[in-house]
Simulated assay, not measured.
Amino acid sequence: MSQPVMVAVLGAGAGARMGGGKLDRDLGGRPLGAWALATAQSLGAMVCFISDGRRPGWVGPDVEVVHNPHAASGMASSLRLAVDRAQGCDAARLLIMLADMPFVEAATLRMLLDRTAEDRVSACRYPDGRLGPPACFGAGRMASLAALTGDVGARHLLNQPGFALALSIDAAELQDIDTPEDLRLARLRAASRMAGMPPSGH
């Protein structure tokens, strides 16, 4: 990549609907959170993991862990930390990923990066038509993320008219894991994927 890119994997949420410890739960023989992190690292960019105050054992030494002491206040605090790291590294683009979305493909992330110039934002289009993460912010648009407060995520910005370019991808990539039932379905999908079979329906 010709210009510095920061990939921030957000993993500071409490995972309350899973009873805590969500990202450590097994998915296809490895921790749930390790899936998104491995995809982020495959891009060859700088990667930081926004954490709730600990360094999970599945986060390798080549990943910067940024502790969020205000994680309980909502996702905006993690986004502000991601922007701070990106700006501190003079990154031209900041790619935001969620650690509980294991099936996002590296090709999707590269398309987001390719579509994002300094003053542009690109995001994924969900089945309901709304935009959401993963999303990529050019350097000139990062300040809008840093201005968010409370439990307001990037979707608040991405769905403002004309704010972001939409990337339509396979909805199966956008599965996030919030509940035990979500994890059960994800395990079926991971098993099918590793067996070389079509993924199970949701």
Rank of each mutant, 00 (worst) to 15 (best):
residue 18 M to W: 00
residue 83 V to D: 11
residue 193 R to G: 05
residue 127 P to D: 02
residue 194 M to I: 01
residue 9 V to Q: 13
residue 60 G to F: 11
residue 149 T to A: 12
residue 112 L to W: 01
residue 47 V to N: 02
residue 19 G to C: 14
residue 63 V to L: 10
residue 9 V to L: 11
residue 119 D to S: 09
residue 181 E to V: 06
residue 47 V to Y: 03
residue 15 G to C: 06
residue 16 A to H: 09
residue 45 A to T: 15
residue 173 E to P: 11
residue 165 L to N: 02
residue 176 D to C: 09
residue 116 T to N: 04
residue 198 P to C: 08
residue 112 L to Q: 13
residue 171 A to K: 13
residue 105 E to D: 14
residue 141 R to M: 15
residue 152 V to F: 01
residue 37 L to R: 07
residue 88 G to H: 07
residue 9 V to P: 12
residue 102 P to E: 04
residue 106 A to D: 09
residue 159 N to Y: 03
residue 138 G to T: 01
residue 39 T to N: 11
residue 135 A to P: 10
residue 1 M to D: 03
residue 25 R to Q: 14
residue 159 N to S: 05
residue 26 D to S: 06
residue 123 A to Q: 07
residue 163 F to W: 07
residue 122 S to E: 05
residue 88 G to S: 05
residue 170 D to E: 10
residue 89 C to K: 15
residue 81 L to V: 09
residue 50 I to R: 15
residue 188 L to H: 06
residue 3 Q to I: 05
residue 136 C to T: 14
residue 200 S to W: 03
residue 7 V to N: 03
residue 111 M to G: 00
residue 167 L to D: 13
residue 72 A to Y: 00
residue 67 H to V: 06
residue 146 A to K: 14
residue 118 E to F: 07
residue 136 C to G: 08
residue 64 E to K: 14
residue 174 L to G: 02
residue 172 A to N: 08
residue 190 A to C: 12
residue 190 A to Y: 02
residue 82 A to W: 02
residue 199 P to G: 03
residue 126 Y to N: 06
residue 97 M to R: 13
residue 142 M to K: 08
residue 46 M to A: 15
residue 42 S to M: 02
residue 3 Q to F: 02
residue 45 A to R: 15
residue 138 G to M: 10
residue 79 L to Q: 09
residue 32 L to R: 05
residue 107 A to F: 03
residue 70 H to F: 00
residue 10 L to E: 09
residue 108 T to K: 08
residue 149 T to G: 01
residue 113 L to F: 00
residue 64 E to F: 07
residue 31 P to D: 09
residue 160 Q to H: 05
residue 144 S to C: 07
residue 114 D to P: 01
residue 71 A to D: 01
residue 32 L to G: 04
residue 3 Q to E: 10
residue 200 S to Q: 06
residue 193 R to M: 15
residue 127 P to M: 04
residue 195 A to R: 13
residue 86 A to W: 09
residue 166 A to K: 04
residue 121 V to K: 08
residue 74 G to Y: 00
residue 23 L to I: 05
residue 16 A to G: 09
residue 182 D to F: 07
residue 155 R to A: 15
residue 128 D to A: 14
residue 39 T to K: 14
residue 131 L to V: 11
residue 85 R to T: 11
residue 110 R to W: 00
residue 4 P to G: 09
residue 201 G to L: 13
residue 94 L to D: 11
residue 156 H to C: 09
residue 52 D to A: 15
residue 187 R to L: 02
residue 187 R to C: 07
residue 186 A to R: 05
residue 71 A to V: 00
residue 30 R to Y: 06
residue 188 L to F: 02
residue 177 I to E: 11
residue 99 A to Y: 03
residue 148 L to H: 10
residue 109 L to S: 07
residue 148 L to C: 05
residue 150 G to C: 06
residue 168 S to A: 15
residue 29 G to C: 09
residue 114 D to K: 05
residue 187 R to K: 11
residue 9 V to E: 12
residue 135 A to N: 12
residue 81 L to E: 04
residue 8 A to M: 06
residue 199 P to A: 07
residue 159 N to Q: 12
residue 108 T to N: 10
residue 149 T to L: 03
residue 92 A to P: 04
residue 15 G to F: 03
residue 151 D to I: 00
residue 168 S to W: 00
residue 8 A to K: 12
residue 149 T to V: 12
residue 4 P to Y: 12
residue 74 G to C: 01
residue 119 D to N: 13
residue 7 V to D: 00
residue 111 M to P: 02
residue 95 L to Y: 01
residue 201 G to I: 02
residue 173 E to D: 05
residue 191 A to V: 01
residue 91 A to D: 04
residue 81 L to A: 05
residue 148 L to T: 08
residue 111 M to K: 11
residue 159 N to L: 04
